[in-house]
Nucleic acid binder design. Structure first.
Length: 932
RNA sequence: GGGCCAUUAGCUCAGUCGGUUAGAGCACUGUGCUGAUAACGCAGGGGUCCGCCGUUCGAUUCGGCGAUGGCCCA
């Protein structure tokens, strides 16, 4: 007889090698065919919603690893919540307007763009954005992310654009919007404002001068009348805009007598500066910077006060420790000016020439005026020492390469303190939003606390216009809810392009007149809105406008850079217009860094592209990676890490494959064995599975995906592969194929396969679906997708803490037995454990009698041919153990009996029946019963 | 320069509400099996818990300073 026909070896076509890169494509096609996303939405449409609102990536370039991390994390949550029965519409979005696209398009157009109309350039930008959206969309779908991909939200959609206008209108109505001055980078060759990204730093030579300001009002300090502050500057032309001098509040300043006058100079630089006046100087007295605040000086050549203020950013490595402040010509100066309510003076026109405001140099270019101003200072004797020429890094225009200036211009702002908004937002951050991790609260609070008013206007082309007009006759601003609403309706139909294609009167309600002069002629504002205003309107444009969504969202999930970005800039207008945050919870993830923790950059050559990983290994590898590390901190990736992920993927896959391969002849209807008839170790495994599920489920609820990875992976290795499944092979292969012992084992395998497949489904989506398709019995009603199934449901009977405790002791004993086996492998020439008889002396109190009850089961646990159990307490003067462990003393005997060629055990009763040569009695019985 | 975050074995993570020899899996080394086989099992080695100072009888854990790396700002 061919005994091999009586051995139930595992059987399956489920491939050991995943070939994910090709198999995943088939699964994506399948999802598309069955319209998986719609199915899932429909299934739960009457249930509680869970809205994860997608933050829009910028529609530029291919997706990078950070995008992949972000979208996969979102997808894991959406899928999990969906399996929990929540209604989970997920609408992906893209941020379409803005400088980077405009920049790129102009670069591609070359000189041609100068002859083009704004509308034509905008069309090119739109084309560019749409093209990249398609590229990125394909990649996101390839990652296995589900969502409304055929109808995503785009910030360039007319419906979206109209919501931006609507939000702006509401802010206008409530009084948040005002026009004010702000310094910006300005190129007077191109006559345009430049964004930070358009500024290049290059060498430039400037005149460096020291200038004295005489004290006019001592603010009750005991100072001589002829006392001066000295400032140092490399931009003499900004002196006409000087309104203050900043000192560091903590620095020590000396009152110095030199050449019959008194000067105030920071301690560390006193010698350096005083020498310029006279080699002979004397320190009279010292003051802290904070004491000198509010002293008033006279401007050296203009009839204007210059007030002493305090600022933390003052340094003492160069200059004098007293910094010339011109809020019209510097960012920091401007902020200091805001704090001290100083005027913003900027007497310079678009061409970089002085205006009437500084009539001495009227019509003269600022750089040319440097000399004239220095001469003026010489004349008034306020120049300290001689001017010097220095080479330093200075901002230049990216386009014309000429040096640029900082110049105050009129800009539109959102007033953050209007109607006590800032305080209310801080309160909302504190009490009404759940920040995960918790420190996110402190981070965004600190930003909101200190942020200046939001400058909304940009002097660009590719964006949403600021819907404001100016009277052609008297220049009065026309900014009203009524006009904005009128425009909004046009935008719904024609998009914001109408602002560029239609005339002012077409864009205004009929009969609109200037409130000041009554004229009906208007000019359109040419500025557009900051792109952050676009994405900050998404909660209105998407959550409110799409009737199947709702606001506030349950969750926003982005990188931690968005505390300053999208989270804050959604929160501000949302609170201003709706009186609440647009999100209930905000979850942040860290950044992707290389294997040594360094940021990725082209120049370092450490950039990892998601496309490469997908093509080489598959999306599930990338998805597994997102759960491998704790994403709340930075996550690293590189070749070694990917290799490890691939290895652990194989382990999980092989474990699942083993389960499947032993269930080939199992029918859940007929063969499922009821719980009470299972063996103890079966119940133990189900109890461990129950424990695992509790752990996994709460980890999903708390978004701790790395805990899920570690738990499942460890479960596969420790509980299953090296223990339960290893032991189970004997029962699966050698018991009668339809015996209750084997069916009991299969019942457990079935429960394991069903539960683990669901547990991994949100993460290893492709693999879970593949398993579901291959072994459809694990799906409750033979649904077309594993994701249509409810979350893991386990029989409450599986929970069994006492059994886990008891079997922990058995595991401890097993570990002593394994050590003994390892020793005897060498000393007694034992190779396979089945060659042995194991004799144990149990050392654990009260366990001995329990062990006797399950002796047969324990024999299989130790995978030996014979087991003898003794109580260590009853052991008399025997110390001849192979291993004497903490839990058991063990002797391993090598059996010289014949090996049964069916079950491979070594037993006395082998080869005793000539009808069944070479096999043991137990095997003969089984063959007689099951394989006649 | 400022705000926030991180730092435990080669890697990814546990953990210690301050208390004996700090854990897991992987990787590594050795080894067994050949009925999960481009699989599976077993055993072993490996850590100044980033550094310094302080609080304490006692610190990897608490506090301060610093280093390195990250994000945001200047």
């Amino acid at each position: 007889m061919d005994y091999s026909k009586t051995v139930n070896l595992p059987k399956t076509d489920f491939p050991m090698r995943a070939n994910l890169n090709t198999r995943e494509l088939e699964i994506i096609k399948y999802w598309d065919e069955i319209n998986l996303y719609q199915k899932l939405i429909d299934k739960n449409k009457n249930n509680n919603p869970y809205i994860l609102h997608d933050g829009p990536p910028y529609a530029n370039g291919n997706i990078h690893i950070g995008h992949a991390l972000n979208k996969i994390l979102k997808d894991i949550i959406v899928k999990y919540k969906c399996m929990r029965g929540f209604y989970t519409p997920f609408v992906p979005g893209w941020d379409c307007h803005g400088m980077p696209i405009e920049h790129k398009v102009i670069e591609l157009l070359g000189a041609k763009h100068k002859q083009m109309q704004k509308k034509e350039i905008r069309d090119e930008c739109k084309k560019y954005a749409l093209k990249h959206i398609e590229i990125q969309k394909k990649d996101f779908i390839r990652l296995g992310c589900i969502g409304e991909w055929e109808n995503p939200y785009l910030t360039l959609d007319p419906v979206y654009e109209s919501a931006i206008i609507e939000m702006f209108g509401e802010l206008v109505e409530k009084g948040y919007i005002y026009k004010g001055l702000k310094p910006v980078h300005w190129c007077f060759h191109c006559e345009t404002a430049l964004a930070d990204a358009e500024v290049e730093y290059d060498n430039h030579s400037s005149s460096s001068i020291y200038v004295r300001f005489k004290i006019k009002n001592k603010n009750n300090l005991d100072l001589p009348d002829n006392t001066y502050f000295i400032i140092w500057t490399t931009t003499p032309w900004t002196l006409p805009a000087n309104v203050a001098i900043a000192l560091h509040p903590e620095f020590v300043y000396n009152l110095v007598l030199a050449a019959n006058n008194y000067y105030i100079i920071v301690d560390d630089l006193t010698e350096n500066v005083a020498k310029r006046i006279s080699a002979d100087f004397k320190i009279i007295k010292q003051y802290k910077g904070s004491e000198l605040e509010k002293i008033i000086c006279s401007h050296p050549f203009i009839d204007r006060d210059s007030v002493i203020i305090n600022a933390d950013y003052v340094t003492k490595d160069t200059g004098t420790g007293a910094v010339h402040i011109a809020p019209g010509h510097g960012e920091e100066d401007f902020i200091a000016g805001k704090i001290y309510k100083l005027p913003t003076i900027s007497p310079v026109d678009n061409q970089g020439k002085f205006t009437n405001e500084f009539s001495d140099c009227k019509g003269i270019n600022v750089f040319d005026a440097n000399k004239l101003i220095i001469n003026k200072l010489k004349q008034s004797n306020d120049l300290i020492g001689d001017p010097e020429t220095i080479e330093h890094q200075y901002p230049h225009c990216w386009r014309c390469k000429n040096p640029i200036i900082f110049r105050a211009t009129h800009q539109w702002f959102l007033k953050v303190d209007h109607l006590n908004l800032r305080k209310k937002i801080l309160d909302c951050i504190d009490n009404n939003v759940n920040w995960i991790p918790n420190w996110g609260k402190d981070r965004i609070s600190a930003m909101v606390k200190l942020r200046p008013d939001w400058c909304l206007s940009r002097q660009r082309i590719w964006g949403v216009p600021i819907p404001v007009m100016y009277c052609k006759n008297c220049q009065e601003v026309l900014i009203s809810k009524k006009c904005i609403d009128y425009f909004k309706n046009l935008v719904e139909k024609y998009g914001v392009d109408s602002w560029f294609t239609m005339t002012a009167s077409e864009l205004l309600p009929p009969d609109t007149k200037c409130e000041k002069c009554g004229s009906a002629e208007f000019e359109k504002e040419t500025d557009i809105l900051d792109v952050w205003f676009d994405s900050g309107a998404s909660h209105i444009a998407v959550l409110e406008k799409r009737e199947y969504l709702s606001s506030p969202a349950d969750l926003y999930l982005e990188g931690s850079d968005q505390h300053r970005g999208w989270f804050q800039l959604s929160l501000i207008p949302s609170y201003a217009t709706r009186g609440r945050a647009p999100f209930k919870s905000v979850l942040t993830h860290g950044f992707v860094v290389d294997e040594s923790g360094k940021k990725m950059s082209k120049s370092e050559g450490n950039v990892v592209s998601p496309q490469d990983i997908i093509n080489k290994y598959g999306s599930d590898i990338l998805r597994l990676w997102t759960s491998y590390e704790d994403y709340r901190n930075d996550v690293s990736i590189g070749g070694d890490i990917i290799n490890r992920i691939v290895e652990s993927y194989k382990k999980i896959r092989n474990t699942m494959r083993f389960l499947i391969s032993n269930l080939y002849d199992f029918n859940r209807q007929n063969d499922y064995v009821e719980y009470d008839k299972l063996l103890e170790m079966d119940k133990w495994t189900l109890a461990k599975l129950y424990e695992l599920n509790e752990k996994i489920t709460s980890a999903y609820n708390e978004f701790k995906f790395h805990t899920i990875y570690h738990s499942i992976y460890n479960f596969c290795i420790k509980e299953l592969s090296s223990f339960y499944l290893d032991i189970l092979k004997e029962r699966l292969y050698l018991s009668g194929s339809s015996s209750i012992e084997r069916r009991a084992a299969q019942t457990v395998l079935f429960e394991l396969l069903k539960a683990i497949t669901k547990m991994i489904a949100p993460i290893l989506s492709f693999t879970a679906e593949e398993i579901g398709k291959f072994y459809p019995q694990i799906k409750n009603n033979n649904e077309s997708s594993i994701f249509e199934n409810e979350w893991v449901e386990l029989n409450p009977k599986f929970q069994n803490i006492d059994l886990i405790k008891k079997w922990q002791m058995i595991l401890d004993i097993r570990s002593d037995v394994l050590k003994a086996l390892e020793i005897t492998r060498k000393t007694k020439n034992i190779n396979h454990s089945l060659e042995s008889r194991i004799i144990i002396w149990c050392k654990i109190e009260n366990l001995y009698s329990e062990l006797l009850k399950i002796k047969d089961e324990l024999r299989s646990v130790f995978i030996c041919s014979d087991l003898i159990i003794n109580n260590y307490e009853e052991n008399e003067n025997n110390d001849n153990f192979d291993y004497n462990g903490d839990f058991a003393a063990v002797v391993v005997q090598k059996l010289e009996t014949k090996k049964c060629s069916r079950c491979w055990k070594y037993k006395e009763n082998t080869d005793t029946d000539s009808n069944y040569p070479n096999i043991c009695k137990e095997c003969i019985d089984i063959i007689k019963q099951y394989y006649k």
